[in-house]
Every structure is written in C-alpha cells, then in structure tokens.
Computed example of a mutant assay.
Amino acid sequence: MTKFTTSAHALCAAALVSMGATAASAQDEYGDREGWPDSFTVGTASQGGTYFAYGSGWANLVADELGISGGGEVTGGPMQNMALVHTGDAAFGMTTMGPAAESLEGTNPIAPGLEMTGACAMFPMYQTPFSVTALSSSDIASISDIPDGARIGFGPAGSTSDTYFPRMMDTLGVNYERRNGGWSDLGTQLQDGLLDVIAFAAGVPVPAVSQLEVQTDVNIIEFTEEEQAMLLEEFPVSEFEIAADTYSTLEEPARSVSMWNFAIAGCDLPESFVYAVTDIVMSDNERMVNIHRAAESTVPENWDRNQVLMWHPGAARWFMENADADIPDDMIYSSGS
C-alpha cells in the first residue's frame, strides 16, 4: 500500500514538472507574458455553422498550447463579433470583410453611429461564397428565371448572408419576399414548397444543400459573367468558383462571388499575446484543417486579403517576419494614433 502511494505521488510530481516545463517552454518561446489575460473567448456564431466549429477549434488549440483557459462563444455572428471585440467583451472574434467595413464606418446595426475601431485584424480564415439553390421542379435555373415576388430564404436574421444577399438580389433586379431562418429549416421549407429559392452565404458545401441533394433534385445556380461583374463592382467581394466536386449536382464549377473572413483581436491586447496566438494558428495548417476543412485557406500568403481593418501590431509582426508581408505603418494599430 505504501509502495503504491509513493508511486502515485511520484507520478503526480512528474506530471506537475511536465506541465511546468510546458508552460515555461511557451513563456520562453513567446517572451514575457506581462499583461496577458488569464482566459479568453472567441466570438463565433450559432452552433451548427462553420464559424462555431472553426472558432471553437482554434480557441481550444490556442488554450492548450499556451496553457490558459479559452474557448468559443455562441454569438450572432460577424456584426456582433465586431461589437464584442471592440468593447472588450471578447478578446477575439471572427468577421467577414463587409461587416467589418460597416462597423468601422459606424453603420453596424447593433450600435449605429459607433465606429468600432477597437477591433484589429489578426489572421485570414477562409472565403464565404454566396450560393443560390432552387428545386429542379421549379424550372429556376438562373437568376433571371427567379419570378417576381419569389419567396427567398436568406439565412439567419443579421447574418452576413441576410445582410448582403438581399442587396445583391436588388442589384441584380430580382423582386422577392424576404424570409429568414436557420440553414436546415430553410432547406426543409424549400423542399416543402414554402420557399422558391434559398440564397446562402456560408462555407461550402452547405450542409442543408447537401441534404437536399440526397432527398430531391436541385439546381445550384451560378451567376453569369455580367452578374458577377455587377456584384464585384458594388460589394466588398471577390471572384469565386464553387468546385464541381462540392455537390453531386454540379457537373462543372459554378461561378460565384465570396467574402473573406478574418479573425480579429482587441487592438489593445498585448503584442506578445496576439503574436503567440497568430503563431499557433498559422504555423501548422494541417492542425487547422483537421479542425475544419475550410482552414485550407488559413495560410500565411492570404494575409493581403485584409484591405479594411487595421492590423494588430502582434499579428502584423508575425506576418512581416514569417510571410514577407508588406504591411504599411499606417495600417498597423497604434494606441497613440
């Protein structure tokens, strides 16, 4: 009995030494931890979506690597994340470039008139394509086929999809009735004939669309070159092709547009802390892809996809040192500016 107890104590002591060595190693690697928080949260979005899975994954990875408490937090998505990070209610968050631009301009609907300059760019995530789906039985095979007064589901209220896709439809001359709801619910409504079209901005494949394919025939509708050009001119989006192997319905790539997603950090967080977080996420892409397939785009060379937000100085230093990033001084946040 005594021998067992002694062995148990020895094992516990060894574990404590190991934990201490890990913490010391992290401290040695990233320098003085003065001012670092004891815990952190990452603002994501609703459960079941790409943001929640991706954000919770990298939050847990960072927490494990740095030996501090951290995790993802359910939020209303990109607009709310900008507000939470700006006010300091969340250390980190995730946003798309459109909501980021609106938040800086003071037109974020969560706090109209408030210029949310306290949220800084940290690292590139992935692109969110805008995709349109209808039942094959509807004979809607193009944007121009959408009839006047069509019932279109745009995703959760206040989401990137709901914020931008209606405006895009307006630009393309579509007359519609606007409907909102969760991805799966809207997919079911389309199948039941309660909607004519679903228009989602979400990482592909969209699970609701993949499920529809299994149950019925659908049309994945691409934009024409002219329609794509109109959207590129009017909105903060980039050219995108939905790969043919994304959905079984597609026989060739579908022309679309997309909006880049970026991780954001409170601008006043310690430089060494944000440098460490950026380093953990960006230094091993395989780990990130294991968290979510969308992280295939979470690579250093995509640093230049941010043309909107000021860079956090810790993140900017990482990309300049490790990705030869040419970030102008006037795009790097300074507390004195």
Rank of each mutant, 00 (worst) to 15 (best):
T107Y: 06
N219G: 07
L114H: 08
G266F: 06
R167H: 04
I332L: 07
D192N: 05
L104M: 07
F262E: 08
D32Q: 03
D196N: 09
T5S: 12
S210Q: 15
A23E: 00
Q127M: 04
A263R: 08
N219H: 11
V218T: 08
D89I: 07
H312W: 07
L84I: 06
I140W: 07
N302H: 13
G93F: 07
I221C: 11
V174Q: 03
T107Q: 10
M169W: 02
T96G: 15
G48Q: 12
D304K: 06
D185P: 00
S131L: 10
T117Q: 05
L84W: 12
G76L: 14
S258V: 01
G49P: 00
A13L: 14
E252T: 14
P207W: 07
V218I: 14
S248L: 10
A276L: 13
E301N: 07
A8F: 12
A323Q: 11
E34R: 04
A14Q: 14
G35Y: 08
D148F: 01
V206K: 08
A325D: 09
A90K: 15
Y275G: 11
G70S: 10
G48E: 13
E233D: 15
Q127V: 03
Q27Y: 00
P166A: 03
I242L: 11
S136G: 04
E226G: 01
S334D: 15
F52L: 03
P109D: 06
A201I: 05
R151V: 01
Y275Q: 12
C12G: 02
E102R: 08
L232T: 14
R151P: 01
E222I: 07
G181F: 06
E29M: 09
A53R: 10
L11E: 09
N261C: 05
Y126P: 01
A254F: 03
P166K: 10
I143P: 00
I146E: 02
G71R: 14
E29I: 08
Q127A: 08
G149S: 02
V308T: 13
P147Y: 01
E239P: 04
I332M: 07
M97Q: 14
V132H: 11
C120M: 02
G67Y: 05
N108A: 11
P112T: 10
M79V: 13
V174M: 03
T298E: 07
G266K: 15
F154V: 02
A150H: 08
A265Y: 11
A90M: 11
S238D: 15
E102Y: 04
C12L: 12
T171R: 12
G43N: 08
T298F: 11
A23Q: 08
F165L: 10
V132I: 14
F319I: 09
F40C: 06
W260T: 14
T2E: 13
E102N: 05
T216C: 05
T188I: 10
P253N: 10
H292Y: 04
D279K: 05
M331H: 09
N261V: 08
A201N: 11
A10E: 13
L66D: 04
G155T: 01
A134V: 01
E239V: 03
